[in-house]
Write a protein that binds this DNA or RNA. Sequence first.
RNA 1: GGAGGCGUCGCCUAGUCCGGUCUAUGGCGCCCGCCUGCUAAGCGGGUUUGGGGCUACAACCCCAUCGAGGGUUCAAAUCCCUCCGCCUCCGCCA
Length: 424
Amino acid sequence: MIDPRLLRDDPDRVRAAQAKRGLSADVVDRALSADEARRSAITAYEQKRAEQKAIGKQVAQAQGEEKQALLAQVKDLAAAVKELEATQNAAEQEWDDALRSIPNVAADEAPAGGEDDFATIEHVGTPREFDFEPRDHIELGRMLGAIDLERGAKVSGSRFYFLTGIGARLELALVSMAMDQAREAGFTQVIAPSLVKPRAMEGTGFLGQAADDVYRIEGEEMYLVGTSEVAMAAYHSDEILDGDSLPLRYAAFSPCFRKEAGSHGKDTKGIIRVHWFDKVEMFVYTTLEESYAEHERLLAWEKEFLDKLGLAYRVIDVAAGDLGLSAIRKFDCEVWIPTQGKYRELTSTSNCTDFQTRRLDTRQRTADGTRPVATLNGTLTAITRTIVAILETHQNADGSVTVPEALRPYLGGLEVLEPLERTA
RNA sequence: GGAGGCGUCGCCUAGUCCGGUCUAUGGCGCCCGCCUGCUAAGCGGGUUUGGGGCUACAACCCCAUCGAGGGUUCAAAUCCCUCCGCCUCCGCCA
């Protein structure tokens, strides 16, 4: 959630931020009046409570008739305190609800508007020209025996797949390559749980409008994560971190699950948009001041990985309305998909500043107290889309695929993926 | 899944049976000061977190905080209920 002090001191800035995302500012006023109601309720309760405590002390010492008199007096007080406490709790709840529904204040640099209002920052590499008709990843995957969509649908339904043979090896290779890069950059490698409690989901901002896309476990208060960001943001919840320990950089592997509600008809074929995929995600805890530079670093690491795979892509500055609840700024790396003739999101990095840590209560110790830290996340590799990009970009006329040099060591030196003689 | 034990302000710990004198004890660590050629030791003081008031976002005052949430009571670390986590044993299992 946003800093309550910002809301109190500069509500117009929050109103402007709502407008920039294309949202109503009503919630700002609701939060402001809730804050006032809350504070007067707190004052009222605390006054009565202090009175009750004072008399309570006398009761403990008094004897006989005097004690009886005091008891009678304080009995009414107890009822009043109870009532005021309930009022306070309700006011507090109201305020919390309003505050939590306000998204993070977008960075000045983030373009205003919605999904289509992004700004292109740069193009890296050039989309490959083919002197033959390129095959899409579905056909290549079938020829290589790498992707089995039919059986995915049979076993789990639409938007599911099996990676088989070289497909399975590709995933393991990509994960290793990503993890090695991260480790060399100083990240701690993590295998994270993909099933989490509501707190983690809510804290990262995925239970608001985004809740439609989240799988909930029947009969349990548990959710399947859509990204290991969820587990990693909650990793240090309710902790006060030593200021010297920052930044804390984690590279987490986990499966990711998404209902893809509302995307009917989009990317219905292949493994571009699936209900489950595996991902290596960078997640960083740092100071607010350092978060902006760290965001650039995360982008640089994402680009390094794409560069090593020889992919052509562009980097976009995502518009305010498309940032999600938590981020103030987001860069997407969109890779050129030859058979679609367009750029598709492959990785994404967000600076969530102290929005998530206020919800999850992760602070740092400073010379004069504690303060919330900043969190950032960035994709190193989302396996399925990475495989799509590699197969389509590096394919040859005979259906074979040239392995990017950087990936070869992870495939036992394999230089070319060859089609199977016949498919099973 | 079953049985039992445990959860106290960084760590360890007293207190819980028998509710009020708990404004939570003591030790370790850490911080400040004194002392001291230096260090150590010694001595004195400080050291949970969140919120509210007032303000300079200081000092100060107040409220909450003994795993979490309810309840009983004038009053709860202490009594009752529910939940969570950890440990031991059994069962099951990768």
